[in-house]
Design a protein around this nucleic acid. Structure first.
Lengths: 247, 247
DNA sequence: GCATATTATTAGGCTCGCCTAACAAGGCAT
DNA sequence: ATGCCTTGTTAGGCGAGCCTAATAATATGC
């Protein structure tokens, strides 16, 4: 018997099968090939060999044409996958406030690659939020309100940012367009929404990243800025949505 | 020309190649097959067909036996991957305080499956922490101190939890073992460390999950508790590390 | 009991992405 | 120039994991 810690290495696909079987057994008391195929949205012909593989790994009990049952090891593995799934779903849903279906999709995609170490840390984050009412009600509420619902820095500054710590008050918030050539700033927020925001994020306009204004075309329309050692051209309107604090 | 938003669907492997090429070009000014193979830890024979595929997709410029260059589209795609990578790495490193190498591994594994939507939300989280000094210095510092460095609920209770919100003060913190048969509680924290903690998390002992004490064996050693509709047996010592608030 | 419908298995293909090993093309030294 | 060494390409294999289509086993209706 491989006692406490057996680091079985399952593929993502097999983990999915295991998870599906666990849920089917929990919900309906049994799991047949057809149900599994339907739940996983694959054809029945793909399920049989997968069950064979799981059976060879000792994770399920399966006699041809009989109901599928999890072994003890299989149940452990299934619970592990489900716990990761649940944790991730709740992170995207409760912390990042994504819609349920999107949070679910995200969790499905990531659950197979999240390490136990990262899982541990993420749980501690939830524990902290869950056990510390102050953190939860204040910080999380503010985050949801300021950044997700009403993402305008002025309001946020009034509501929370400028309120307590004097050290940052003298830091000047500019947008990138206002930086003088040769000057640098640390990105604090990208206020653009939708596709433009997406594009800017994709380019690497992430918080804490340092950008330098290189030069602006006459009239200021394309401006060239550099970040991470490479140069990019931005429309003036885009540059104006990037809030920085000058270095 | 596929203007603003072209939703090219790259496989994880091709994204990795693109990322590698981008970094090699940025660092050394050129990228050869051998360098790419070395950086990605694959054999040179695997690289050529990958370059062919990227070339067919219009993401790189590549003449047989010449240096590799990114097209404009390719560079955009590479930047997008890198931005996700960077963001994730920093999440695991700065927020969850994982060691650099572990954070890096985690980022590598997840970067290919994180949706733009989730990326957006995660960026807003960073923006919030970055633009709101109060949040950052108070909340994050407390989290790191209370949950990651010194994970003992008593200290945490003194330092932050019991300090402000009176509503929760009357909630009794118990451990699962102290629950009477038939009674339920909401998990707040799993204090066990190491392998035992891992096992409990794997079983689904996650914050906010409701558990019910079913029964305890005479002497209290295995105790049976149920969560998510299924029963589990726990050692007494394990049950005592699970902190709940009774419902 | 026998025909039909449902369900499961198997066989044969396919893609992706890796491998190894053989082969091709230049660069460099003698 | 000849040959070696480094580098790149190609061919052939392999495993995962999906597909379809044919077949086998079980259940159900008449």
């Amino acid at each position: 018997m491989s006692s406490t810690t057996e680091p079985i290495n399952l593929t993502g696909s097999l983990e999915d099968y295991l998870e599906t079987i666990f849920l089917l057994v929990a919900d309906h008391g049994f799991a047949r090939v057809r149900d599994i195929a339907k739940a996983r949205d694959v054809k029945a012909g793909s399920v049989s060999p997968a069950l064979k593989r799981l059976s060879d790994l000792g994770l399920i009990r399966y006699e041809r044409r009989e109901y599928v049952g999890l072994t003890l090891e299989g149940e452990l593995a299934a619970r592990r996958v489900l716990a990761r799934h649940d944790l991730l779903r709740r992170f995207f849903s409760e912390i990042l406030q994504m819609p349920d279906d999107a949070a679910e999709r995200e969790a499905c995609a990531i659950e197979h690659v999240l390490s136990p170490e990262a899982m541990d840390r993420l749980v501690r984050l939830f524990e902290f939020l869950s056990a510390c009412p102050e953190s939860q009600s204040e910080w999380l509420r503010r985050f949801h309100h300021c950044s997700l619902v009403q993402p305008e820095l002025e309001k946020c500054e009034n509501a929370c940012c400028r309120s307590t710590l004097p050290s940052r008050i003298d830091e000047k918030f500019h947008n990138v367009f206002q930086l003088k050539p040769g000057h640098e700033g640390t990105i604090r927020q990208v206020r653009a929404q939708g596709a433009v925001r997406q594009r800017l994020l994709d380019m690497g306009m992430l918080p804490q990243v340092v950008v330098r204004m290189e030069r602006a075309a006459p009239g200021g329309d394309p401006v060239w800025i550099s970040l991470n050692g490479s140069q990019l051209a931005l429309r003036r309107a885009e540059a104006e949505t990037i809030i920085v604090t000058e270095l």
